[in-house]
Amino acid sequence: MNPISGGRTARWTTYIIAFLITALIFATAFYASNYFNNQRIADIRATQDDISTDIISLETQFDLLQEHSCADVAENTILPSEMTSLGDQLSYMEAQGSSSQDEVTRLKRLYSILEIKDYLLMQQLAAKCNLKPVFILYFYSNKGDCTNCEKQGYALTSLSQTYPELRVYSFDYNLDVGALQTLVSIDAVGNKLPAVVINGKVYYGYQTVQDIEKILPQLSTLKIATSTAATSTKK
């Protein structure tokens, strides 16, 4: 390329063109990010709608129980993994700190209600159909005031992986949902998080996998995941 030397007098049009292009890139980035966030929220909402429909259907089946066998109803229960997957997606969206946090909070509140409904329904099914589901209610906070919540979350994930039939219901203690606050009152869960409720008793502070296995002997009645079982054998 030929040699070059230019005057240093500023050409304002270059400054303006560069500004417009940069602003356009920024606007596109924010638009694209917002678009994908909305897609995710739509995915979550669709999953929640499905779960919601399933729960209503299950409740209806339950009401009509005299006309159905317990086996029919039990077959249609929500799988714990479906709930966990939805919870993971909501946690991810929350951690991303995107611009649609209000929407994420709304979805999270609905998720908590669905969890409570599933929990109540499973209890009723257990009573009437002689099922033996195993529950853990887990209360956490992500306001930065719960140092062991992260560890507790991992411990419960580990248990869920070992026992796929275990139903772990995670609740954000600070979430403003009437049903959740009622659940907190019923189980008398204090603000000393993390807290897990097992068989109606509240345990505060970090509970290891071994601790939980000790206080929840019913776990031994659940099937063990094959891949995790292999890992456990190594231990």
Binding site: N2, I4, G6, G7, A18
Partner: peptide, 18 residues
Amino acid sequence: VFMLVSFLRRRPTTALTS
């Protein structure tokens, strides 16, 4: 972007032929 635009908009008269 400014550098790229400046490169693209360099004045032909400033190019010194060798």
